[in-house]
Design a protein around this nucleic acid. Sequence first.
DNA 1: GACGCTACTGCCATAAACTGTCAGCAGGCA
DNA 2: TGCCTGCTGACAGTTTATGGCAGTAGCGTC
Lengths: 230, 230
Amino acid sequence: MVARSERLLTLLQTLRRYRRPVTGTVLAEETGVSLRTLYRDIASLQAQGAMIEGEAGIGYVLKPGFMLPPMMFSEEELEALVLGSRWVARAAEPRLANAGADALAKIAAVLPPDMREMVDSATLFVGRKRQDEDKADVSAIRKAIRLERILELHYGDEQGRISRRRVWPFALGYFEHVRIIMAWCELRQDFRHFRTDRIIDMTIHDTRYPRRRTVLLKEWRDTQDTPIEH
Amino acid sequence: MVARSERLLTLLQTLRRYRRPVTGTVLAEETGVSLRTLYRDIASLQAQGAMIEGEAGIGYVLKPGFMLPPMMFSEEELEALVLGSRWVARAAEPRLANAGADALAKIAAVLPPDMREMVDSATLFVGRKRQDEDKADVSAIRKAIRLERILELHYGDEQGRISRRRVWPFALGYFEHVRIIMAWCELRQDFRHFRTDRIIDMTIHDTRYPRRRTVLLKEWRDTQDTPIEH
DNA sequence: GACGCTACTGCCATAAACTGTCAGCAGGCA
DNA sequence: TGCCTGCTGACAGTTTATGGCAGTAGCGTC
């Protein structure tokens, strides 16, 4: 039932042990299989995306890297991976930043549509704010964003003025220690952002707000002078 | 050759489409397979780590999340994922931070030993430094770390004093816009760190330094008052 | 408790896939 | 040219997967 796939993993590991080209004969012996079958196994791995290069008269080389076996990630683990990759894509040196963007693209490519939305709406900022206690339940906010629910905020701004307003949250931004809700504010009839640590109290309404959050996200991006992504 | 694994992916997608429990009969019809085989397929997926719950009289439910098919990541993409997850584990809200740590652990668990070293030696900082041009080739530095080569630095410190010293690099730290080389300094006979953007010139020697970089890393961590990780 | 629905397991004959052997072609290297 | 190697096709033997059948057990409802 799993004999074959296990053998393929063994083959990958064997291939990585050698840094120099290895002949198919050697690999066949090490994996305990005939040469013909080894060629078939190599073909299978290549079909699955493994970067194995074979050259006549030389042998096989595995390009440096690693093949991740099938793995299950929870929604939040996936979100963590996406956010992290995006941070790397922004903050690291160009070469590593590209790698981050590539990794993100690879993951996004195999993501089902409903989850790709999450990738789009998890906007990332890297800022220099102070740490602060969070009074608001951030996971509840994420849920409100996902379900496109109206959020009623009891909010204190930088000057300490307290207001109460209904907003349409469509994205969550991650500063270093502070989260920002991106939302359309019914009061101001414009996009506003709210630091989660300045939320005094909040209520998630059962009614959906009348627009799609993806549309709001796009419109908000259009209003930005320097787009977060391109 | 790939019929079975493709069918399993189809099954996962079908299972995710339904939010409510689905009976095995329905799944069998949709994947075009007999009920008996479907039970076997479910078992295979569960054995591979998919979080599928089956209850008699109810049906099957897939816990929210996503199964990543086998994918090839380059060394740098892997490093980007690791760095990103680590940043999330440090900087995000507790819930998401845990998710980042979990994702990191999952990836590390399936990594071969030689690559797990890379995970350990890619230290992460989140700082608030200014962006600056990098004169040094960061990928060359990473190579020097990997091969445990002596690095000769022509370095200008914060006061503008220029020095030339031989160091044993063992890790690379990532600030927001600046990279830091962690190294043992032969001149000072102690651990020192060097901003890559302050490197005027550098030479990678062909000789290995006389200690293992993993040991250096561990010793350096022991000297820290507040360890980066626990 | 009885009934319907469902998950789950064992068994076995059949169908499909995999495997090894043999043969042949093509490309790199000396 | 000769040798080593990757790569592909064909075919028979073997292994594995599949489907149907029967049976057990858990959940919900009447």
